[in-house]
Simulated assay, not measured.
Amino acid sequence: MAKQAGVKVSTLRYYDARGLLSPAYRTESGYRLYTPDQLERLRFIQEAKRLGLSLRQIAQILQSSDAGDAPCERVAPLFRRMAARLDERITQLQARRDALEYALAHAHCGQESSPCRLVSLAVDYQRRCRTMARLIEVFTAGCPLCDETVQRVQQAVAQCGCTVVTRAPDSPEAQQYGIRAVPAIVVEGQLLFTGVPTQAQADALLRRA
């Protein structure tokens, strides 16, 4: 029974209504009964949601698995896109955090000339970073050589305030730039390098870019 397994009935009904989980059978009084396998399926659904998968995506994975297919080949590029979006989000959050820390560290400098000096300092810092920094995109398939390329790019631009974003080879940006092989390095929308650069190559390439 769901209650014995510590699962809320409302949770079971929620996924049942969306076609992700069906009771094994119903009692004459209308109670839904679920097997241990179905409760394990529920745990899979909940953990997949926590990873950021939508119910539609989870349903497609379950349908593929129920049909006897292996969904991992279709999930892998999805995970790469999700990871790339997370990298981009993390970079944005880090930049915001840097602005807040800068404002706190320099709040004692200068005169009050706005409704809030802290806000003005943080905003000015962000404006300067947007003016100085460049967007560097590394297209990667998640292989060791691709990971090595990302590390070398990050090391090459560690002090310049550039934003480094990783993207999947099947992303819309890859199609836009005409990426045919990975790893590939794109700076401000221009494809500069395809392959695995040495650290010296990455340093020289990104300093000139």
Rank of each mutant, 00 (worst) to 15 (best):
Q60M: 09
E173N: 08
P144L: 03
C116W: 13
Y102P: 10
D69S: 10
A48P: 08
C109I: 14
R41I: 02
S171W: 02
Q159W: 11
R180N: 12
A107Y: 12
D16G: 05
V187R: 00
T35K: 15
R56K: 15
D124Y: 06
S64G: 02
G52H: 12
T27M: 03
L118E: 12
C162L: 06
M82L: 15
R128N: 09
Y125A: 02
Q176M: 11
R130W: 08
Q4G: 07
A184P: 02
A202V: 01
E148Q: 15
D124W: 06
Q38K: 13
R43L: 11
M132T: 14
S64P: 00
L86W: 10
Q201T: 04
S114V: 07
Y102Q: 13
R117K: 15
R81W: 05
T149Q: 06
I179W: 02
Y34V: 04
L53K: 01
Y25M: 00
R80N: 02
M1Q: 09
R180P: 03
R81H: 15
R13K: 11
L33V: 15
I90A: 12
T194F: 04
R152H: 01
L104I: 14
F193C: 05
L55W: 13
D87R: 14
S54G: 14
A2S: 15
E40R: 12
P169M: 08
V164L: 08
C129V: 03
A174P: 09
L205F: 05
L53S: 04
R81M: 13
V75S: 06
R43A: 13
S54T: 15
Y14T: 02
R117Y: 08
S113F: 06
E188M: 07
A174H: 03
Y177I: 03
L205A: 00
L53W: 11
T163R: 14
R26V: 08
R13V: 12
I61P: 01
V164A: 04
S120T: 13
D147M: 10
A59W: 09
Y34M: 07
A107G: 12
I61W: 01
A70S: 14
A168S: 15
S113T: 15
P23S: 02
Q154I: 01
L192Q: 05
A200F: 02
V150F: 01
R50L: 13
Q151G: 03
V9K: 07
Q92T: 14
D69M: 03
Q159T: 08
Q151A: 14
A99P: 04
S114W: 03
T198D: 00
R134E: 02
I185M: 09
V164D: 07
L192M: 01
P77A: 05
G6V: 11
A59L: 10
S54I: 04
A5M: 07
A103V: 00
Q63W: 05
S22D: 09
E101F: 04
T140W: 05
L145T: 04
T91M: 07
Q92D: 14
K3Y: 12
S114F: 01
C143W: 07
E40Y: 02
P197G: 09
A204N: 11
V123K: 13
T166F: 03
L145E: 03
V196D: 00
L39A: 03
G178R: 10
C162H: 14
P36G: 11
A76S: 03
L20F: 04
H108P: 04
S10H: 12
L33T: 06
A184H: 06
E101A: 13
G142N: 10
P144M: 08
E47R: 15
M1E: 07
S10Q: 14
I179Y: 06
L191E: 04
Y25C: 06
R96C: 07
